[in-house]
Design a protein around this nucleic acid. Structure first.
Lengths: 281, 281
DNA sequence: GAGATTTTGGAATTTTTATTCCATTTTCGG
DNA sequence: CCGAAAATGGAATAAAAATTCCAAAATCTC
């Protein structure tokens, strides 16, 4: 059974293990690919897990994990685990310590910057958890659950959020339209009675977004605003204003909190609409 | 300290374990003290060792190690080991399962959903802080600091990240081009020698992104990958692979960690390029 | 769409590992 | 130095884990 076709014997380093995985990943059948993905992404836990635990994580039966180990080149799970146990070094500086270390690198180094952005994101999420207003969220969701098409608009730094919303709406089969400003075309004609607008903007507020919201308002559409504060210029144009506290680092927004709110809205809307029909979970 | 005898309950944290050990160390007979000393000094190995291995290390029979575990307060070795294994991988134990449970209970509540997305973001950022690899970041930055134009590509759920990158590059006066796939035009001709590609993709990997990366590779461009793991299909096409641990549930990615990494890269690249010329700080 | 081939899930088996038990040795107070 | 109590080592047992195997299901070929 000397099969030197693919498996020229077991990887001897963790690095090699990942290389082998990358080479294999494509040509693997379903269950084995699940193993490869989960185990590849959680390689650090191989050292402290049992076959059964990894199998549960990858959502496959234990025998699939065994087969996976053999395909990668080991005689079995134990041999694979030995590799990771020997390479095992506890990552003990816990999150807080590690973050501190990252931030203390020389200013401007990628690691230091990353530390700052992680911190900004974490603070934003924490602030959001504090300030989230259930009533406001409910109003926003119920407003947009009953419209025909959900129009989504957001430019500049709000655009990533808008595009992610459009993606999630599509996934959940919610009719939606992303206003992307392409070619300076505003597609105002697409705003039909019975539709709703989800507008996203932060200081300095984008003129185009405000203008579209005004237009929607004038045509009688329901408008929901995702913005920085209740007194945003969007407020007077909207049926529901969801304020998102976001911590900036330099002039760069982390967007973590904004995306969390956007996702929650989108999924809630999708779910509520789907209750009546057949939407994807 | 008030010493209410040795509490006969097991330590629940690693710290408690060490305290208990310190308190006990003096009053222990010979073999047990050997255990305490060796195991106390090598506590980090507990998670990945067997009773027999620890016994050999402490130069005592296995039964002595068992007695030691019980004296410290555990029911046996397995319970002690569980403490250390959990302490090692506390970050994201079984997130998918948790979301699953939540979904079945209170799917429609926007506030509950928001709580989960906040938590997902927080966990992702923590995992990122733990796993961030400075060397990889540095390589990615230096690769893209010396190219002419930075091409950015990412579709579906990676698109928001790509578009945010394009925004930040523009703010920092870094020549860049966002490949948006508009009208199915690939703009491959724009990939010129001396340029670089920053490609972003997550499972299920977008064919278009992979294909563009292949093309860039073939033309000799520098390629940096922002993806979920080192064994991603992008890996073999890239000069630097930055893996981002992100909690993924169905189609819904929190993106917090991904955006944090993207921003750190963009700002570091922008800064480094600006050092030579006169770019905006 | 029938037959061949691959993939899969789970039960059965083997191996490893943890745990208990007890006969023997050591320690200690008198 | 004797007897009681504690400590010890190793063999025996129990539990858990890894590994194999095979029938059923899925997938591919012609």
């Amino acid at each position: 059974m000397d099969d030197q076709e693919t498996a020229d014997r077991a990887p001897t380093t963790v690095e090699e293990f990942h290389e082998r995985l990358a080479a294999l990943a494509d040509r693997l059948p379903k269950r084995l690919r699940q193993c490869a993905e989960y185990i590849g992404a959680n390689a650090d836990r191989i050292a402290v897990s049992t076959v059964a635990e990894l199998a549960a994580g990858a959502d496959v039966p234990p025998s699939a994990v065994m087969r996976f180990c053999q395909i990668v080149g080991f005689s079995g799970f134990s041999e694979m685990q030995r590799l990771f146990r020997e390479a095992y070094a506890p990552v003990w500086p816990d999150y807080a310590t590690r973050l501190q270390a990252l931030k203390e690198k020389d200013a401007g180094s990628p690691a230091a910057l990353l530390g700052e952005f992680i911190e900004a994101g974490r603070l934003s999420l924490e602030a959001l958890a504090q300030s989230a207003d259930e009533a406001v969220l409910n109003r926003a969701v119920s407003v947009l659950s009953h419209v025909n098409t959900v129009h989504v608009v957001g430019f500049r730094r709000a655009f990533p959020v808008a595009s992610y919303l459009a993606y999630v709406f599509e996934k959940m089969s919610v009719p939606s339209m992303l206003h992307d400003g392409l070619g300076q075309m505003t597609h105002r004609g697409a705003l039909r009675p019975g539709d709703g607008l989800l507008a996203i903007t932060f200081p300095p507020y984008s003129r185009e977004t405000l203008s579209l919201a005004e237009d929607a308002r004038a045509r009688g559409l329901a408008v929901v605003a995702l913005t920085d504060r209740l007194s945003s210029p969007l407020a007077t144009l909207s049926d529901a204003v969801v304020p998102v506290p976001e911590v900036d680092f330099g002039s760069f927004r982390s967007l973590s909190a904004t995306i969390a709110v956007a996702m929650a809205l989108a999924v809630a809307i999708g779910t509520r609409r789907g209750d009546g029909e057949n939407a994807r979970p």
